[in-house]
Amino acid sequence: EPLWIRPDAPSRCTWQLGRPASESPHHHTAPAKSPKILPDILKKIGDTPMVRINKIGKKFGLKCELLAKCEFFNAGGSVKDRISLRMIEDAERDGTLKPGDTIIEPTSGNTGIGLALAAAVRGYRCIIVMPEKMSSEKVDVLRALGAEIVRTPTNARFDSPESHVGVAWRLKNEIPNSHILDQYRNASNPLAHYDTTADEILQQCDGKLDMLVASVGTGGTITGIARKLKEKCPGCRIIGVDPEGSILAEPEELNQTEQTTYEVEGIGYDFIPTVLDRTVVDKWFKSNDEEAFTFARMLIAQEGLLCGGSAGSTVAVAVKAAQELQEGQRCVVILPDSVRNYMTKFLSDRWMLQKGFLKEEDLTEKKPWWWHLRVQELGLSAPLTVLPTITCGHTIEILREKGFDQAPVVDEAGVILGMVTLGNMLSSLLAGKVQPSDQVGKVIYKQFKQIRLTDTLGRLSHILEMDHFALVVHEQIQYHSTGKSSQRQMVFGVVTAIDLLNFVAAQERDQK
């Protein structure tokens, strides 16, 4: 057995438009009618409502009807409940999964919650491996369901041993009777949507819809739904939504950006999952974080739909894509998950301010006199920076000697690579993860907040409520011999709460 199987392995699926269902090699399930009293909570997966979006479509000038398939009504709160249950049931049916076995899954959280929910009911041990950027709410729900959680670096490539995929496979090879159901490759993922989600949409719309818009992560949702719609409703256009920084969209030119990270969760990847059939997507749109969270908040405030950030991405694209539809036509959007997962993220004004998705003037509360002053007023001194090749031991000596707790790590040209902190280095040394002679590049981390000289002290204040420091950066445009230009970030300084307090105190003292 291989040590790991690539999540982007070539698909062996034989589905073709027009091929009889009787030739399918898979076990198919028909939607079942729910009894009045459910035998367990797993029976509350599927049969989610279709809700008309009344205000947002009109606000953006849509002539067509805009409908939302509300997947956050599933038992675990997301569309991923469907595939989690289906993968477990299919693994039980073919004898792969037996009582007492362990389920391991690399996930952005929602599939993990679905699997942990099913594992709690069915009696399996469950280990979820997820990147650090995923919300604390997801972690809390997983723990409450009895799952064990392993976190991995957000910026690790999918084929790196440190990625959530790599760590999951390492655990599988170490733990007896453990299984990775593997949402990236498992046919049960798109089949769950082909058999149930798509049929529900067709039934709820009486077979009449002209466009379907869905955000894409593993691709199982859009693949399964689109294949069924292509068979039953061939005139329906399928629109895929991919965040900026991901590479799922086609044509490839759409993916060209210097951005590699994004805040919206559960969609987009740096590889093409095996289950994603991009041939059934008629057109791709890219979405960005700001519009995703703005539209998610709009869905909550104006439509009462308590959905997550990827739902915002989907609707932001839908109001663009559906401009081509006329009166009497219908566009369906998939709202994948609930706001429950993001209470401390985009639902929080403070978080939105820190990330730059909300401006101070958007909030009406009274601010102190210094709130709208610029960061450049602080008069920061030149920063202490270190090269990635310097040793951890030497870096600790320098920081202690100069009285700093942290320093930016830059390359020879001064471009920011990340940050090192005294606390992080000492804990890594004590844990045996690094040696004093190791290069400081081994303990770089990139989960820090950046701020510009033109940003306000109010925004800085919000950042420092949650973080010990902020890195002050400025952009530099560099022209190359080819005539092309590129933008790079340079370090201007490091600012802490002490710097802000000293500035405010000094100004008030001078005024007296």
Rank of each mutant, 00 (worst) to 15 (best):
I239C: 02
I239Y: 09
G240N: 04
E244K: 09
S246A: 15
S246C: 07
A249T: 02
P251L: 11
E252R: 13
N255E: 06
Q256Y: 09
Q256L: 11
Q256S: 11
E258Y: 07
E258F: 11
T261I: 07
Y262I: 02
Y262R: 02
E263G: 06
V264N: 02
Y269W: 04
D270V: 04
D270E: 09
D270Y: 04
D270Q: 06
F271D: 02
F271C: 02
F271Y: 05
I272R: 06
V275G: 02
V275C: 05
V280S: 12
V281Y: 08
D282W: 08
K286V: 04
S287H: 08
S287A: 10
N288D: 15
E290F: 06
E291R: 13
A292P: 09
F293Y: 02
F293S: 02
F295V: 13
F295N: 02
F295K: 05
R297W: 06
L299K: 13
L299W: 02
L299I: 15
L305K: 05
C307S: 15
C307A: 14
G308P: 04
G312M: 02
S313R: 02
T314W: 05
A316H: 12
A316R: 14
V319F: 12
V319A: 11
V319G: 05
A322S: 15
E324F: 13
L325N: 02
C331T: 02
C331L: 10
V332S: 02
V332P: 02
V333P: 06
I334L: 08
R340H: 02
R340S: 02
N341T: 02
Y342F: 08
T344F: 02
K345D: 02
F346D: 06
L347P: 05
D349N: 12
D349A: 02
D349K: 08
M352N: 02
Q354S: 15
F357A: 04
L358S: 08
E360S: 13
E361P: 02
D362C: 02
L363C: 14
L363V: 09
E365G: 12
E365N: 05
K366E: 11
K366V: 13
W370G: 02
V375C: 10
V375E: 05
Q376P: 08
E377R: 06
L380V: 12
S381Q: 09
P383V: 07
P383H: 02
T385Y: 02
P388F: 06
I390E: 06
T391E: 15
C392D: 09
H394S: 02
H394W: 02
I396N: 10
I396S: 13
I398V: 08
I398E: 12
L399V: 08
E401R: 02
K402S: 14
G403C: 11
G403W: 15
D405C: 08
V409H: 02
V410I: 14
V410K: 02
D411A: 13
D411R: 11
V415H: 12
G418S: 11
G418Q: 09
G418E: 05
M419F: 13
M419N: 10
N424G: 12
N424S: 02
M425A: 02
L426Y: 15
L426F: 11
S427G: 13
S427K: 07
S428D: 15
L430P: 15
A431S: 02
A431D: 12
A431V: 12
S437F: 12
D438I: 11
Q439M: 06
V440Y: 06
V440K: 06
V440N: 15
V440C: 13
V440L: 12
V440H: 08
G441D: 12
K442L: 12
K442D: 13
I444E: 09
I444C: 13
I444L: 10
K449D: 12
K449G: 05
I451E: 02
D455K: 06
D455S: 14
T456A: 13
L457E: 02
R459H: 14
R459K: 14
R459I: 14
H462G: 12
I463M: 13
I463K: 15
M466Y: 11
D467L: 08
H468Y: 08
F469E: 13
L471N: 14
V472C: 09
V472S: 10
V473P: 08
V473C: 15
V473I: 02
E475T: 02
Q478L: 15
Q478G: 13
H480I: 10
H480A: 12
T482P: 12
G483Q: 11
K484P: 14
K484L: 13
S485T: 02
S486H: 08
S486M: 13
M490G: 13
V491C: 14
V491R: 06
L500H: 15
L500T: 14
L501N: 07
L501I: 10
F503T: 14
V504S: 08
A506G: 13
R509L: 14
D510C: 13
